[in-house]
Design a protein around this nucleic acid. Structure first.
Length: 591
RNA sequence: GGCCUCGUAGCUCAGUUGGAUAGAGCAACAGCCUUCUAAGCUGUGGGUCAGGGGUUCGAAUCCCUUCGGGGUCACCA
């Protein structure tokens, strides 16, 4: 890495000249702002305490030293305490060539660290909504970024397939379903089951009307209705392995899984392993036992097992009910341990909404207190909710929050817009359908992934899917544009050309940015933040479009310039494709 | 109420291990297609970085405080 090289050089220079122990962390090097001349800027203010000179003198001295001795700095200028360095043209030309020749640029060598990444985590009583979409896109992209960083990744999903929620759908279906199926009704499986969940709510409401003296609290009141009691009995029958109940449960869940599979496929997400709460909900009791033996957990007077986290700034947290049955955290403890046995992972990442920040703090601490070192590798990739302009999406607000409807809508917009532009007459119907898919999903995915995970997203279905400006289709378009230029140029081995004597400003900026790709890739993994890659790719596309408009490529004045610009074009297209792939976004060759 | 978190242009977002005159897109307005894809490019206007205080050569960034939004504080998941 170049910044690293410059830092090391600076550290050595201070050592030689002033016998000062400057650390690399104290040397700040930024890409030079565009209103100043230069490629990189050293901020010298923090260094003057070592040089014992004023900022200008220090910068002057370091600039001279770099120019004379580094071999790559050809010019420098000093503005206040900022030392702007310009690197040799040949340096950037060689850099581009080096990147072009390296088929592994942007793919780090394996680091032999295992990561388990859990994402999606749906309930099986209703279809996926926009919150799941953010989760899935974020989880998938994070996984791809980690893979490109050399991690050995396993993506897993966990289905919350049991309990009161699915029982509600089951009861409503049992009462009113008359043997209908997704096939007989033509409704996608998860929506079919979700409709019965909605039906359950409606029945509760109507049954409530005839109940006298009901409590103020609506949830409490609902528990008095006959249908709610049936649902509770359904849970008990399920836990008692009642055959009829289990058969119905399996049937309804299988419909849901078929529906989910379809959505996963459209979104292009995948998992290497599925977990089911029905299989893991009893796990965790041995961990509780272990905690009690190690006297890390305590049994309270009422019999509940707790962990005291008051010293960690949290509270006492119940880990096991007083009747000895497990709760949510119990099984999460057990599932974590199970996965550690299965995978021996170094990191385990949970992509879960920020509503559960507290839960994951507890989970990690509870495991760490048992001395399980692998718990240090637990990371909660917390993300904020997706809200509508009027506030939080509620499932009963209807269609706008539904994942499948949302996807259908963006595909529709992509199709309408593409037809309006009418540039792609030569494509077959099949190719066109594929193009609408690429563009529509590109718009949706990019819209969500460009935002830092911890920030909430305001999603306005009418306006959010734009195809211009800072959007996925803009980046896709830029890729298609590089392809068009390369097609016209014919096949050529651009990297074996000699280079023009001088670099144009647009060429230089673009190459500097191309050379930053691996830094961004690493940072996105370190910070668990795919939006860094998303924003980088936008900058890359923007720089290319500027270059494209300012500098003739195929009609460049000299053959050398032409070949060089084709190489820039090729590498830009390559990195856009590569980077977008990490975000789960395909790019077309024509659009 | 305790804890966590967010507040940057009319709107959606970058920028936060402290660095130069805070950047993009959308929307508005004005230009650029007989030349490589105009889903593009160029320009104009638009800011008390929620308010106040502090630390520092330097603060959108760190600390304190006030206000506003969200989350959480279950033997629910």
């Amino acid at each position: 890495m170049l910044e690293q090289q410059l830092k090391q050089f600076t550290v050595r220079a201070f050592k030689q000249e002033f016998d000062a122990a400057v650390t690399e962390a104290e040397v700040t090097i930024n890409i030079t702002k565009k209103e100043h001349t230069g490629d990189f800027t050293v901020v010298v203010f923090p260094l003057i305490k070592y040089s014992k000179k004023n900022p200008e003198q220090t910068a002057q001295w370091l600039g001279d030293k770099l120019k004379v001795e580094s071999g790559i700095v050809t010019e420098y200028n000093v503005v206040k305490g900022f030392l702007n360095l310009t690197l040799a043209h040949s340096y950037w030309q060689n850099k581009l060539n080096e990147i072009a020749l390296n088929i592994n640029y942007g793919v780090f060598t394996p680091n032999h660290q295992k990561v388990v990444l859990e994402y999606c985590g749906p309930n099986t009583n209703k279809p996926l909504h926009i919150g799941h979409v953010r989760n899935m896109l974020l989880g998938y992209a994070m996984g791809e970024i980690l893979k490109a960083n050399g991690f050995d990744l396993t993506k897993v999903n966990i289905y919350n397939d049991r309990g009161i929620n699915i029982s509600k759908s089951m009861v409503a279906y049992q009462r009113y379903g008359n043997g209908a199926t997704p096939q007989s009704t033509g409704i996608k499986g998860d929506h079919f089951v979700g409709d019965w969940y909605v039906k359950f709510g409606e029945v509760v409401k109507s049954e409530l009307e005839v109940i006298p003296n009901k409590p103020e609290d609506k949830d409490e009141a609902a528990k008095l209705t006959p249908i709610f009691k049936e649902a509770q009995e359904m849970v008990q029958k399920w836990e008692a392995d009642d055959a009829e109940t289990l058969a119905l449960w399996k049937q309804m869940n299988s419909w849901v899984y078929e529906g989910f599979q379809e959505t996963f496929k459209v979104l292009g997400i995948d998992f290497q392993k599925d977990y089911y709460e029905s299989e893991t909900y009893k796990l965790g009791k041995d961990i509780i036992e272990e905690g009690l033996q190690k006297q890390v957990y305590k049994k309270r007077a009422d019999g509940a097992v707790i962990v005291d986290l008051t010293r960690d700034g949290l509270d006492e947290k119940v880990l096991l009910r007083s009747d000895g049955t497990s709760i949510y955290i119990t099984q999460d403890l057990g599932t974590a341990e199970l996965r550690h046995k299965e995978f021996g992972m170094d990191k385990m990442i949970y992509v879960v909404a920020n509503e559960q920040d507290y839960h994951f703090k507890v989970l990690k601490l509870a495991l760490q207190k048992l001395g399980k070192q692998w718990a240090d590798g637990i990371y909660h990739l917390s993300y904020a909710l997706v809200e509508s302009p009027t506030g939080r999406f509620k499932s009963r607000e209807g269609k706008t929050a539904d994942a499948d409807d949302l996807i259908a809508e963006v595909l529709r917009i992509a199709e309408a817009k593409t037809k309006e532009l009418g540039k792609i007459e030569e494509l077959t119907d099949e190719d066109l359908t594929e193009l609408y898919r690429i563009i529509g999903l590109g718009a949706l995915k990019y819209f969500i992934l460009r935002v830092n995970p911890y920030k909430k997203i305001i999603f306005n279905p009418e306006e959010s899917i734009d195809l211009h400006g800072h959007t996925g289709p803009f980046i896709q378009y830029t890729h298609a544009r590089t392809c068009a230029v390369l097609r016209k140029a014919g096949k050529a081995e651009f990297s074996k050309t000699t280079y023009p004597q001088i670099l144009q400003a647009e060429e230089r900026e673009l190459i500097i940015h191309i050379a930053e790709y691996e830094n961004v890739l690493r940072s996105a993994a370190d910070k668990y933040d795919p939006s860094e890659m998303a924003n980088y790719l936008y900058q890359l596309a923007k720089l290319y479009n500027k270059f494209y408009h300012e500098q003739p490529i195929l009609t460049a004045l000299t053959e050398q310039e032409k070949q060089f610009r084709l190489l820039i074009t090729q590498q830009t297209g390559r990195l856009i494709k590569q980077g977008m792939k990490l975000l789960g976004i395909d790019v077309p060759e024509k659009m």
